[in-house]
Structure formats: structure tokens, C-alpha cells
Write a protein that binds this DNA or RNA. Structure first.
Lengths: 283, 283
DNA sequence: TATTATTACGTTAGGCGTAAAGATT
DNA sequence: AATCTTTACGCCTAACGTAATAATA
């Protein structure tokens, strides 16, 4: 039977051209490689080398053997990787979400219901989330719309309402509510990593510019020190203190008031436990 | 790095269900398999088994690992086979011929010009011979026609003329020559393994029946003891004695007088040496 | 002389089997 | 009691490295 270690030595010899260099590269002695090459010829049952008195080279069959060896080693690596990834997938719940806020509730809930599982999450476009769900690349999707698919459950579990925050001195500060068309044209501070909200704002307010801040501290500082309007939502508890000095004005458009739906395969309806868990918390 | 022997033990365990039976099947001790399974888990870096106090079974990852192991072992077998077959092909000249007679000259000539090579030959349809030549499945083709292909040489080297042999008492015995249409309807003794001649006779003499003899002794006996006509050719020296009592009458149709062409890849024109060799012999 | 492949040789580590233990049916 | 897995233990092979050999550039 073939020995993958021996094949690796063969490949290294093919790469380096001499047994000595191959030995050095592999941190083994020359005699070991000599013996391995002899043993490989026994295993294959054919001559693989053209030998001179103090030189050795691959013959045509040897070149063929190296080609096969490379394929086989690569296949072995792939096999290892596939098994490891399969095992990982058994111990990982992967969540793809359209926005960060639902993750603040879902991730802790998952951890508590499935303490032995690794929870992986990422923000994605709605279309990418649906692909992930259908391909099995994620077990749980979080969408701002109710998608009905055969063999998949879609469960509403959380609502988020967008508001704007402006300093008390701002033109809009007197309003009790606004619409996207009323605020279209104003420039807004915006955080990065806010999922579908980013795209939605650009669609609903095509005349506005958005000053996207990747760094939380930069964003916070700009909130304090500038009069630029920004957004918040009913779920952004973290920002209550920071925004206390500003006026919060809800946006009435239906697009600014979304219900999040959790989507998962019907076989995975164990996740409904987690939904209950979250709904209990929010009550 | 994965060890194919260990993977084989894993597969055997998957097949048998217990370590003991796997050990017995592989003619090794149970502790060895236990250790191997432990070592496999180390190599993969994941748990492969669900262990009880005195029972062990594959878990989901283990099943996946077995699947991968089977693929890998199969790939290893294939790699071995491919290298061996490649080596064999380097030491084998494969000849595909449309008829046996040319092989009587070509095979000994090849052996004498290439004493270190194995010569393999088979009778095939003309279309199959051309496929073999083009695919590289054979290095030398022998055809009854001159086929001109780019990058291939086609060289005439031998002629064969078909005659019929009838007892002196036969109706046809007085003729000095015959045509297929004249002998169409007579039933003929025929040997098997005569290549394209078989098909040709059936096409040229659609009203005749052919009593095909697979066994040489049966055929010879029928020649001696029956008055059924048979065929011979100028190359069938072996049958001169046996047919001495019969009258040999040449068939004049062009289809019964063929020139054999050797076809080979232009890169292999070393075979022309062999052609000279044969032509020298026939002179 | 420096480099290379191969052979010879002594050592050692790792793999195997036997035996025993622990546990289940 | 019989079967099965795992651990313990001792042996022994087989693989490795060092050193020596032979040959080349």
C-alpha cells in the first residue's frame, strides 16, 4: 500500500532535483530518502529513476508517478479538510442577518439554549441570506421580510423602528414625526456595519449624503461635537445616554418600521425554543 | 499526515461494526485497532466515535470520515494502477490488425527489432483500429486499405490473395479462376478469428452459409473428411500440406486481393525499420 | 576538493501482540 | 460465562541517523 509520507518525499525530490536537497528540505538524512525511493519502486513495482554512479533522476514513469502523487496528496488534504469542516459544522450554528440589532438578541439566546455550540454570525444582503439558507451554509437567517419557502419556517420575532436624532437647535427638532421625503437632502452621520439599513437609506433619501463612520469612537465624538443628524432605533439602547441631548423623531414610512423574521429549515424547528426565549425576554 | 493503512482499518471497522471483527478480518489484534482508531482521531483532530463502556460506534463525523477514506483509498489504488499501466505502455508495442496473416510477419519482426518490448496484438474492425491509432491505444495498425491521416504514416508492406479450395471432384474444380458471384450460394467452411475476411465473405456472398469452426482440429478434420469448399490465401503456408489434395482456385475480384498497410504515428516512424525487415524477408 | 548517491552498521523509537482489567449482555 | 473495548507491558522489528564508500564534476 502507498505511504503518503513516501510520496511527499518523492515530490520533494522532483521539486529539488537531488536527494540531498530534498533531504535537507524535509529535515531528514540522505540515506533515508535513498531508502524511501527504493521502497517506492518496490511498492509501484516499476522503475521510477534513471540512476548514474552519483546521480539519480526521474525517468518517464517516475514523472508520471510524481504527477499521481501530487494528486493523491492533494486529495488526502482535501479529505482531512472536509472531515474537519463537517465536524465543525456539527458544532456550529451559523447565523446570517440583514441587520445587527436582531443579533443582539439572537446570539445570546442561541448561546444559552445551545451552550455547547459555536455561534457564528455575519451581516449579509437579503439575497445572500436566502442563498445561505437554501445551500445550508447557514442554519438561521434573519430577514426584514416574510419569505415563504417550502420546507422552511419564517417566524416574526422582533420589530425595529428607525428614528432620526437631531440637536435641539436643528430645523427639524420641532417635528413630532418625519418622512423620508422630508429628510431627503439632509446629510447624515451613519455607522458602518448596519446591514440593510445602509442600502435602504440611500434608496429612500437619494439626495442625501451619508458620512459613514467605521470607528465607533469617531462616530460617538461626531454625535457629541457636531450638529449633523443621525439615526437611532427603538433597539439601540446603547445610545440612549449619548443621544439624550438630542431630539429623537420617528420616521413614519413603513420602510422605516420593520418586523424581523427568523428563517430556518423545517427540520431545524428546534430554534423555535430560542424564539420563545427571546420573546420572553422582550415582554 | 493520513496513513492509508489506518484508513483501511477504519473502513473495515465501518463494514464489520465491531473492532474485534475488524481485527479478525484484517488478521491483527484488537488492541492494534483500538490504538489505530485513537490515532485516527488525533490525526483528524476531531471525534469520530461514540464510545460506550464496552461498545464503540461511528458518530456522524466518523461516517463522513469513512466516506472520505473510501474515496481516498480508491484514489490511491487508481494512482498505483495508472503508474503501472503507464510503465507497461512504455515497454509494450500494441498492434491492432484487421487480419491474422500480417501479424505472422509483423510480430516476429517487432520482437527481433525491439527485443526488450512486450508485443501485444489483437484483431479488430477497421473502424476500431483507426480509433486505437488515434487514441494512442495502439502504436501500430494493420489495415487492408490506404488511410491517409495527418501526422500518421500509412505504408504498404504485404499482399494477400484469397482463393477457394475444393476437392478435385467438386463442380468448380475445373475452373482456373472464380469470382464471388460465381461461388455465391455455395456453403463454405470458415475458420474463426480471420478478421475482416469474415465480414467480407458475408458481404460478397450473401446467399452462402458459412460453417465457422472455432477449433483448429475440428476445422482440419472437416477439410480432410468433407467435400465442403474452404478458403486459403497465398500467405497460408501452414495449410499447404493439408490442402494438397484439393484444387486451389484464385478469386479474381479486387476485394479478394488486398494490400496491407501499416499505419502508425509519424513520431513512431522507427517502425519503418521493421517494415524493411519484413520486406527483406519476403523477397 | 566538494558534492552526490549508496551501503554498512548500530541505536532507538514506535508498533505489535499477549495478557489483564473493566464492563456489558 | 461470553463478548467487547481499553489499558498495561514487554518484545522486536523496522526506520532512522552516523559513518564510511565510491564516484563525479
Amino acid at each position: 500500500m502507498l505511504d503518503l509520507n513516501e510520496l511527499e518525499q518523492l515530490i520533494t525530490f522532483a521539486d529539488t532535483g537531488t536527494l540531498s536537497m530534498a533531504a535537507e528540505k524535509l529535515h531528514i538524512s540522505q540515506p533515508t530518502i535513498t531508502r524511501t525511493m527504493q521502497h517506492l519502486e518496490e511498492t509501484f513495482g516499476v522503475s521510477l529513476f534513471a540512476r548514474g554512479k552519483n546521480k539519480i533522476a526521474l525517468n518517464d514513469t517516475g514523472i508520471k508517478a510524481v504527477e499521481q502523487a501530487k494528486q493523491l496528496l492533494s486529495a488526502a488534504e482535501d479529505a482531512l479538510k472536509r472531515v474537519r469542516e463537517f465536524d465543525k459544522s456539527l458544532h456550529t450554528i451559523t447565523v446570517s442577518s440583514c441587520a445587527p440589532a436582531p443579533l443582539w438578541y439572537v446570539l445570546p439566546a442561541l448561546s444559552s439554549v445551545y451552550p455547547d455550540m459555536t455561534i457564528a454570525s455575519s451581516l449579509k444582503e437579503i439575497s445572500a441570506i436566502l442563498e445561505d439558507i437554501c445551500s445550508g451554509a447557514c442554519q438561521l437567517g434573519i430577514l426584514p421580510i416574510d419569505v415563504k419557502l417550502d420546507n422552511y419556517l419564517s417566524i416574526p420575532f422582533l420589530e425595529e423602528s428607525l428614528s432620526i436624532c437631531v440637536p435641539a437647535s436643528h430645523n427639524l427638532a420641532g417635528k413630532s414625526s418625519v418622512t423620508f421625503s422630508e429628510i431627503n437632502g439632509f446629510n447624515f452621520l451613519l455607522r458602518s456595519e448596519i446591514g440593510f439599513w445602509d442600502e435602504m437609506c440611500r434608496v429612500q433619501m437619494p439626495s442625501s449624503k451619508f458620512l459613514v463612520q467605521t470607528d465607533k469612537f469617531a462616530f460617538d465624538e461626531l454625535i457629541r461635537e457636531s450638529s449633523l443628524p443621525c439615526f437611532t432605533t427603538n433597539l439601540a439602547d446603547d445610545y440612549k445616554n449619548l443621544l439624550a441631548d438630542r431630539v429623537t423623531i420617528p420616521i413614519t414610512d413603513p420602510e422605516a418600521n420593520v418586523t424581523y423574521f427568523m428563517i430556518c429549515h423545517s427540520d431545524d424547528k428546534a430554534y423555535t425554543d430560542m424564539i420563545n426565549h427571546i420573546q420572553r425576554r422582550l415582554r
